[in-house]
Design a protein around this nucleic acid. Sequence first.
RNA 1: GACCCGUUCGUCUAUCGGUUAGGACUCCAGGUUUUCAUCCUGGCAAGAAGGGUUCGACUCCCUUACGGGUCGCCA
Length: 369
Amino acid sequence: GPDSGGGFHPPSQPSDSYYQSQRKPIYDAYFEKLLAADRLYKDGDAYRFRFDRKPITMHDLVCGEVTIDYRDESNTPDMIIRRSDGSYVFHFVNVVDDLEMKMTHVIRGEDHLMNTPKHLQLIEALGEQPPQYAHIPLILNPDGSKMSKRDAGAAVGDYPKQGFLSEAVVNFIALLGWSSKSDDEIFTLTELVDRFSIEAINRAPARFDFEKCKWVNQQHIAKISTDRFADLAKPFVEAENLPITENYPAVIAAVKEKVRLLSEVPAAIDFLITDTAAQDDEAVAKAKANPNAALLFELAIYFEFSGDWSADIAKEAISSFAQEKNVKPGQLMFPVRVALSGRAHGPDLGDIFAILGQGKTVKRLKEFQ
RNA sequence: GACCCGUUCGUCUAUCGGUUAGGACUCCAGGUUUUCAUCCUGGCAAGAAGGGUUCGACUCCCUUACGGGUCGCCA
């Protein structure tokens, strides 16, 4: 339908003209009203609305009192409201729809601020009462330039694709130009609804900070259940052609607090579910240079003859083995981690032991030469 | 160009005439965690500039600079 809340859909979408054709009788009626009030005049086959030549003051909930002087005709030429082809322009259908729907508040981007006196004039000419307006600041690119539709972060549909949670995105965007006036920043949707107020919105445009957006996302991931996290992460895992094994729940639980984006999940778990995961060459080289790397084969044997197998048992085994060899367990853990995962960072070592199982743990330790 | 709106750490922000200008993200340094991460502590870092008003200004006023928005038979 007509866009009253910012430019999110492309111009001349078929649905728009279809929508307008359905509602044409309604628009025609309002058009007749203006015609009868002698506020319209022809310009070719189109119709222009004659503005009242006086200062128009709006009382914006965010911007406060703003006055535009319509006596200056050069800056405010009478506007077309009906095109030569009989269709109505945005300003007109927008006003009529808001009136018809009995809108009480119109909250939209600041790019519409200068349109508002036009709408106010239309509403006054129609003898109706205007809604309350709130014009919120626009969001800028990280470098301060204006954000256009193609810029990163502009399309809300891109966030899920990049691995953001919807509630995290809502939370982060709310923080752009608005503050709870407290030190709290992470809010669920209901908390946000509870705390948000138009009065607390700033007037200056804010820049989009991708890093903080990711941090907010991480905070929300930490808050959701492991089950929901597993469901949300699944499409990303499948997109990387990784199998959803029966130990997927355990695998996913091991990395829940380690990722900031859902899209980071595949790379965080691949070594747990396949044997062909890419390795971090730098970490591998560093681990091999570690003096304790020479002990890994022996540790593998030690593990191999351990009767039972669990995260705790394996950790215990490392401790006692380290004691035998007179090294600190902590120093043994880095090369073990790299031998098992191929990288320097990852899940808790106990989780890795448990998920990989005794066989794979022993095998990877032995092969790490 | 005209007309609107704006300007506090790199970024998001608190402050509604009197504060060592606070918090968050990022970064750095410690600490906890036998590992990774989390977490905790500390650190770096700000009132665009110039004039006023005032006992006193980030806060009020003016000018300049800079940024954003709007000036369509687009939405």
